[in-house]
Design a protein around this nucleic acid. Structure first.
Lengths: 220, 220
DNA sequence: GGATTTTTGGAGCAATGACATCAAAAATAA
DNA sequence: TTATTTTTGATGTCATTGCTCCAAAAATCC
């Protein structure tokens, strides 16, 4: 979380002595994040990065270490931002599990199609289609995806305790399903689907939500 | 469909006269497809390709034209193969619409996790995260995705005619939903999800299938 | 067998990739 | 002001990328 030590220099802390950085590190990181988000790791070149960040090659090098290190930081930055709304909804104590997931997808539809940042999700789209040399990144992104899927499953388990879901609900599987839908929404967003289209897909996905015990009978 | 004319030479036809090709073009194309499927367009280098295809740089060049042209051919090759099982199920006249989609996802779960080729779907994962220079490929893949989504919607419209679905079903939206699930399955497969996990996600997705008219009442 | 036609291997090219170096510049502390 | 510390811009390196060219090789037809 705190700034990392890179090649002996510490960025962000220790005001005083030498010449202070002329660029806003957080802002530069944000620009990098947007580029990675839009184009992916491979799709973003060194030169693209330093141009967007407004810094020189060497500033880049001794502030961020390497392209890969920057990508990790940018990913963390993204997770911090997206985790904000994601967990706010998931952990809202005032709503039941089903409502939480419904709101999650409503928020997802909105966030994935906002005009002030790239479309879709940086995590969902990254590290699925890559060469052997990108194994680190691939695994890192897979872990992030597994993490959010795990958080969903956890929320569902709490839902069982709250009586929102039947005892015999397979939370891991249900979370895997909603996770898959979220990945699909990211692709749809990339392909230009509207906010309303994504929202409706989310609503349809909620129809798969399990009925409570004793209420699963349907008139044939 | 037939072999294309590249730089004056015609591959695959016109046996006779000059030295015949020593490599099997279809086999080489297959190898290229597998590599692109596994690593994506950017993730696959020229050298990777000619090594996997077992041909020289110049053979590659005058047989396939360019990396991008080869990618298009490989994509067509993939679509021909995947379209085989996809449309066989979608257009099976002996089953109703819901059964068709259920089988589609069962087949998807199986095909996405087979050991004899890369995991997931070449179309779902490609061209979502790429630099401006790959606009052609990005748009091509988006079109392919839209095509399969359209085919799903078409099948649903037939389902309405057959009485499998209520008249007021929004087929485009329902297809968008199932399309999104399919994209999500591809990501799950890439992240190592088992055949059974994918199959179960598909089953859960089918719970969103609309109830027939007059049967949508649920005992609260 | 000789002519013709096409493939093949290998060398090579310009452009780009990411990364690295270093002296000059700048801002603070003493 | 001077010494110190750190950033900065310019330039350099080394590997890779996708592509091209060309002479030698090989297989068919006459």
């Amino acid at each position: 979380m705190t700034s990392k030590i890179i090649k002996g220099s510490i960025q962000g802390s220790k005001r005083g002595r030498g010449r202070p950085a002329v660029f806003d590190r957080d802002l530069a990181l944000r620009e990098a994040m947007n580029l990675f988000w839009e184009r992916g790791y491979e799709g973003t070149s060194f030169d693209d990065l330093i141009a967007a960040m407004g810094i020189s090659s060497s500033s880049f090098y001794n502030s961020f270490g390497s392209k890969e290190a920057l990508y990790c930081e940018a990913t963390q930055s993204y997770l911090e931002w997206s985790g904000h709304w994601f967990f706010a909804i998931l952990n809202d104590p005032s709503i039941d599990a089903k409502t939480a997931f419904a709101r999650l997808f409503a928020a997802t539809a909105e966030e994935f199609t906002r005009g002030d940042h790239p479309l879709g999700c940086m995590i969902s789209l990254a590290g699925t289609h890559c060469p052997p040399g990108m194994k680190n990144i691939r695994e890192m992104m897979a872990e992030h995806r597994a993490f959010s899927e795990g958080a969903m499953a956890e929320r569902m388990r709490k839902g069982i305790q709250d009586g929102d879901l039947s005892e015999d609900t397979d939370c891991d599987m249900l979370a895997a399903y909603y996770s898959a839908v979220a990945r699909g929404l990211a692709v749809q967003a990339r392909d230009g689907a509207s906010h309303e289209k994504l929202a409706e897909i989310g609503r349809l996905a909620m129809r798969a939500w399990p009925a409570r015990q004793g209420a699963e009978k349907v008139i044939a």
